Lab assay of single mutants.
Amino acid sequence: MEVRTIKVFTTVDNINLHTQVVDMSMTYGQQFGPTYLDGADVTKIKPHNSHEGKTFYVLPNDDTLRVEAFEYYHTTDPSFLGRYMSALNHTKKWKYPQVNGLTSIKWADNNCYLATALLTLQQIELKFNPPALQDAYYRARAGEAANFCALILAYCNKTVGELGDVRETMSYLFQHANLDSCKRVLNVVCKTCGQQQTTLKGVEAVMYMGTLSYEQFKKGVQIPCTCGKQATKYLVQQESPFVMMSAPPAQYELKHGTFTCASEYTGNYQCGHYKHITSKETLYCIDGALLTKSSEYKGPITDVFYKENSYTTTIK
């Protein structure tokens, strides 16, 4: 009895394709271990004539594949690729409408935090270190965002349907971005203890939790000093293409032309909904596939993004 075979390709990165001759009487799992086709788990399936010449994702289970996976995804987590594939199996079914010149995501599976993050990423200057993220990001900007969303979920250790947080998501993504040249110098002034300067680099240099107003941050924000008295913390120097200011959701007025974009969060910790506000020729609110415009805006804002380049204080 002759062994019926077909020729397929296996890959971990969709760049390096490895030619395989597979036995049609055995499952993919018996031949390769966990195997995925377009995100779908085909591990328990036997090869079919229609699979001839198709590319299958496999887990990096030998040295060659491990090197290829690390170079593309910059992670050695053995569960990463499987999590990416199972997320992709959902995100490829989502709709990605162009809204006001940006790629958004039609609401499904509690994905409003991903839509808000995706919209924000198209408006701030950011370059990702893992080629996987950078490639998928370019495709997302062009309207094909399924891979990018699935990668975000995998890097953030999230599953489809789980509630997510924009600030946490951005923080994970910033860790995989090139923020080497970003720098922030802060000064804390206390009447009792004097003053202390701190220099922050990388992710810490672009994120701040405690106030939404970048102007206020430049002037000074009140913080408790270690001595128990009130101290003032203010920005001395900022070198970065953008800054992200966050605070627990509270009524906040966004003035046209003073910011790049913002995240609105309605609801409580267990259950809520994100919308995205962007400042173009007027203010726009993007909620999944829905767009509304207004000249002014007041609502429960939790993150505001500002364009920056270089700032030095005039406070002496």
Rank of each mutant, 00 (worst) to 15 (best):
R4W: 11
R4N: 13
T5S: 10
I6E: 01
K7A: 13
V8H: 02
V8A: 12
V8E: 04
T10D: 07
T10F: 07
T10C: 12
V12P: 11
D13C: 02
I15D: 12
I15Q: 09
I15L: 12
N16R: 10
L17I: 09
L17V: 09
V21D: 12
V22P: 10
D23W: 08
D23R: 10
D23T: 14
D23V: 12
M24K: 11
M24V: 12
S25P: 08
S25L: 10
M26H: 15
M26K: 15
T27L: 12
Y28A: 05
Q30R: 14
Q30K: 12
F32D: 06
P34H: 13
P34V: 14
T35S: 13
T35Y: 05
L37F: 11
L37W: 14
D38Q: 10
G39N: 09
G39E: 10
G39T: 13
A40V: 13
K44Y: 10
I45P: 07
I45A: 12
I45G: 13
P47H: 08
P47D: 08
P47E: 05
P47Q: 05
P47C: 04
N49Y: 11
S50R: 12
S50A: 13
H51E: 11
H51V: 05
G53V: 03
K54I: 12
T55F: 07
T55M: 08
F56H: 06
F56T: 05
V58W: 08
L59Y: 15
D63A: 14
D63H: 14
T64I: 11
T64Y: 10
L65Y: 07
R66L: 12
R66D: 09
E68R: 06
F70C: 10
F70L: 15
E71A: 12
Y72K: 09
Y73V: 04
T76I: 11
T76K: 08
D77N: 08
P78Y: 10
P78E: 13
F80L: 07
G82A: 15
R83Q: 09
R83N: 10
R83D: 06
Y84K: 08
Y84E: 05
M85Y: 15
S86I: 06
L88P: 10
L88W: 11
N89S: 13
H90N: 09
H90Y: 11
T91M: 06
T91C: 11
T91V: 09
K92A: 10
K93I: 07
W94I: 03
K95Q: 14
Q98E: 11
V99L: 13
N100C: 15
G101K: 11
G101E: 10
L102Y: 10
L102C: 05
L102M: 15
T103I: 12
T103D: 09
I105A: 02
I105W: 00
K106H: 12
K106V: 15
W107Y: 08
W107F: 02
W107N: 07
N111Y: 05
N111T: 06
C112N: 00
C112K: 02
Y113R: 07
Y113N: 06
Y113M: 06
L114H: 07
L114T: 04
L114F: 08
A117F: 05
A117G: 03
T120V: 09
L121Q: 03
Q122C: 04
Q122R: 00
Q123M: 04
E125S: 07
E125I: 04
L126Y: 00
L126H: 00
L126T: 06
L126M: 05
L126C: 12
L126W: 08
F128D: 01
N129S: 08
N129G: 06
P130W: 03
L133V: 04
Q134L: 07
Q134H: 11
D135A: 08
A136P: 04
A136Y: 08
Y137F: 15
Y137C: 07
R141H: 10
R141S: 09
R141V: 11
R141F: 08
G143H: 05
G143R: 01
G143E: 01
E144Q: 11
A145F: 02
A145W: 05
N147Q: 12
N147S: 09
N147G: 09
C149K: 02
A150E: 06
I152T: 10
I152Q: 03
L153A: 00
T159N: 12
T159V: 09
G161V: 03
E162Y: 00
E162H: 03
G164S: 04
G164T: 00
G164E: 01
D165F: 11
D165W: 04
R167P: 00
R167D: 04
T169K: 04
M170K: 03
S171T: 13
Y172T: 12
L173W: 02
Q175Y: 12
H176A: 04
H176K: 06
A177T: 10
A177E: 00
N178V: 06
L179I: 00
D180C: 04
D180L: 04
D180Y: 08
S181A: 15
K183D: 00
K183L: 11
N187P: 02
V188Y: 05
V188I: 13
V188T: 15
C190T: 04
C190S: 03
C190L: 05
K191I: 15
C193P: 02
C193R: 05
Q195W: 09
Q197G: 05
Q197I: 09
T198S: 12
T199V: 11
K201D: 07
G202T: 04
V203A: 11
A205P: 06
A205T: 02
M209I: 15
M209H: 15
G210P: 00
T211S: 08
T211G: 06
L212T: 11
S213E: 05
E215M: 02
Q216W: 00
F217Y: 02
K218E: 03
G220Y: 00
V221C: 07
Q222Y: 06
I223Q: 10
I223H: 13
C225A: 06
C225Y: 00
C225P: 01
T226W: 03
C227P: 00
G228W: 02
K229R: 12
K229G: 15
Q230T: 14
T232E: 04
Y234I: 11
L235G: 01
L235V: 09
V236E: 07
E239S: 08
S240G: 06
F242G: 05
F242L: 01
V243R: 03
M244D: 01
M244A: 00
M244Q: 00
M245F: 11
A247T: 12
A247M: 11
A247D: 02
P248C: 07
A250P: 02
Q251V: 10
Q251H: 15
Y252N: 03
E253S: 11
L254N: 02
L254S: 02
L254C: 05
K255C: 05
T258A: 10
F259N: 08
F259A: 02
F259M: 08
C261G: 03
A262F: 01
A262Y: 00
S263L: 06
S263Y: 00
T266M: 11
G267V: 15
C271L: 13
C271V: 11
C271T: 08
G272Y: 05
H273V: 07
H273T: 03
K275D: 01
K275P: 01
I277M: 11
T278C: 11
T278S: 13
T278Y: 13
K280R: 13
E281H: 02
L283Y: 01
Y284G: 08
C285P: 02
C285R: 09
C285L: 12
D287C: 02
D287H: 00
G288E: 00
A289S: 12
L290M: 13
L290S: 15
L291P: 05
L291K: 10
S294L: 15
S295T: 13
S295F: 05
E296L: 11
Y297C: 07
Y297L: 00
Y297K: 10
K298I: 13
G299Y: 02
P300I: 15
D303A: 06
V304H: 01
F305D: 00
F305Y: 03
F305P: 01
F305T: 08
F305V: 00
K307G: 05
E308I: 01
N309L: 13
S310M: 14
S310Y: 13
Y311A: 11
T312P: 12
T312K: 05
T313K: 15
T314K: 15
T314F: 13
K316E: 15
